[in-house]
Amino acid sequence: MNRPVLLRRLYADKSAASAVEFALVVPVMILFLLGIIDVGRFIWNTNEVEKAVQIGTRWAVATDIIPGDDNANGLKNYSYAINGGVPQGQVVPKSPVSGSSAFPGVVCTSTNAGAVTCTCKASCPFTTATTGDSFDTLVGRMNQIYAGIAPQNVQVDYDWSGLGYSGDPNGSDVDPLVTVTVKDVAFRPIFLAGIFNFGLPDLSYTLTMEDGEGSFSN
């Protein structure tokens, strides 16, 4: 049999066509399937983080105030009436008025080594040094909802709300707006064998401070 005849028969032979087509289509189908799974995981994890932020904020307003912890000169115990020049019974201002002290707001963050730092957004009269574990306890509560939240992913802001009054004998002189933000949480997709590491969206939630003391929140 001459060569042209062999070539014509080989060209006309379709016996392995299905196997070749299957080999070409399967990788695309697998990648498509993994992509669908990753979209579902991304949405699920985002919802978990959102719930963790809500639970964390509830925890933050119902348990110990973080800036200053239980320090006698910390935010929780500082008296604007005695030490801050704000007449008892009046709302603590956001900015100093007639030489009186004010509450400009505080932001608390942590490093991956666990060091917690609280910084006033302007000059404030109380200490912000954190000596307790209130921040770590907050992160631990959030981890019960989503374990991928690390201390460095969490930021807690205390902002002026106009609530509370100077000389309050039953708690902090200010009842700030407390905002818990979770940011830079990693998300590693299955797609492309996890080569790329995408981040979940930054999420935050705000509530008004309640008693600001205690160690548990429902």
Rank of each mutant, 00 (worst) to 15 (best):
Y80F: 07
F135N: 01
A72I: 00
G199Y: 12
F42M: 11
P169W: 15
Y165M: 04
K76H: 13
P93S: 10
R188Y: 01
E48C: 11
Q54R: 15
N197A: 09
S110Y: 14
V107Y: 02
I195N: 01
C120V: 12
S95Y: 15
L33Y: 11
A23G: 02
Y80K: 03
V91R: 00
P189Q: 07
T57R: 04
V182G: 03
D13Y: 08
T127W: 15
A16D: 03
Y78G: 01
N218I: 12
G212D: 04
L6F: 02
F191H: 08
V49S: 06
S15Y: 00
F103W: 13
S166K: 02
D159N: 02
S215R: 03
A72M: 01
A19T: 04
P67V: 12
G140R: 13
I36N: 12
G194F: 14
G148M: 10
C124N: 00
G162R: 05
F103Y: 12
S100F: 08
M1A: 01
V97M: 05
R3E: 00
P27C: 10
T208K: 04
V174N: 01
F22E: 06
S172H: 05
M29D: 03
V106N: 03
R3H: 10
E48N: 11
L7G: 04
F196S: 08
